[in-house]
């Protein structure tokens, strides 16, 4: 479903701040794979996700989603294939627009937009049912401004928006990092449910080793702009935090430290 080959990305090229963020990263995801991505600060996990999403154009390599080469495709053009949830709850929704308008924008992802109504009456009923299934009490607040919602509610809504039209690839970029632990757990469980119900191919960046082990069928650890560890299947199921720390120790580059939040989170 996703085939990344020899991906290369440099920031601030030609300046003293030049930094190679991704170095020859290759990765293939089969349909239905749920891979968790973990790694220290600056390991390249968010850069990888953002390159796949089209936020940064890569400096080398190729990205193919379901047989379509999207390497040079503008961010808004490849959005039709992708569902995304961001770390910052403010980033995934429009605060000044109401819940149904946000959902309606997501429903039209990858479709031509014309002069018909932005939200139709029939859609409204659909949204109500979807929000009811979410169990956050949002079904009666369709016309409430999203800016009034809590961070957790906004992330849940963004998740619903990302999966409203089944994406070929779901990209979760530390989407629970800004939430309190209880809310984070709820949003993670919701994500897991949505992913398994829809059989969605997913990449989830997280800083939490336990979550990286608990969720998904495959785990990737990034270090110094490359993939250092790649475990799946039985091996992944039996993985412990201690194993992961050892693997990280072995794989890490010089001077790279394990951030506390990765271990303690």
């Amino acid at each position: 479903m996703l085939k990344v080959t020899g991906l290369y990305k440099v920031f601030n090229r030609g300046t003293v701040n030049e930094r190679v963020a991704l170095e020859n990263v290759s990765l293939t995801l089969e349909k239905g794979d749920f891979v968790t991505v973990i790694g220290g600060n600056g390991a390249g996990k968010s850069t990888l996700l953002n390159c796949v999403a089209g936020v940064y154009p890569p400096d080398g390599g190729s990205i193919v989603v379901d047989g379509v080469d999207v390497t040079r495709l503008a961010e808004y053009r490849r959005a039709r294939h992708l569902g995304r949830v961001f770390q910052d709850p403010m980033r995934g929704t429009c605060a000044d627009m109401n819940i149904e308008e946000n959902l309606a924008l997501a429903r039209r992802r990858g479709r031509p937009r014309g002069l018909s109504w932005g939200v139709t009456r029939r859609e409204r009923e659909e949204y109500r049912a979807m929000l009811e299934a979410l169990g956050l009490g949002l079904e009666d607040r369709l016309s409430a401004k999203v800016g009034l919602l809590s961070g957790g509610q906004r992330q849940a809504l963004t998740l619903l928006m990302a999966t409203l039209r089944a994406p070929k690839l779901l990209l979760l970029d530390e989407h629970t990092a800004a939430l309190d632990p209880r809310t984070a757990k709820k949003v993670l469980e919701l994500s897991d449910r949505v992913i398994s119900e829809g059989g969605l191919t997913t990449m989830m960046v997280t800083h939490n080793m336990r979550d990286a082990i608990r969720y998904g069928n495959r785990l990737i650890m990034m270090s110094g702009g490359g993939i250092a560890v790649d475990v799946s299947g039985e091996e992944k199921k039996n993985l412990t935090v201690e194993d992961l720390l050892k693997l990280f120790e072995k794989a890490r580059g010089d001077g790279e430290e394990i951030p506390d939040r990765m271990v303690l989170g």
Partner: peptide
Amino acid sequence: RATGNNPHMARAQGIN
């Protein structure tokens, strides 16, 4: 309206 409010979100929803 979405573009003015949150251009990141707009692009993620396929808006040019």
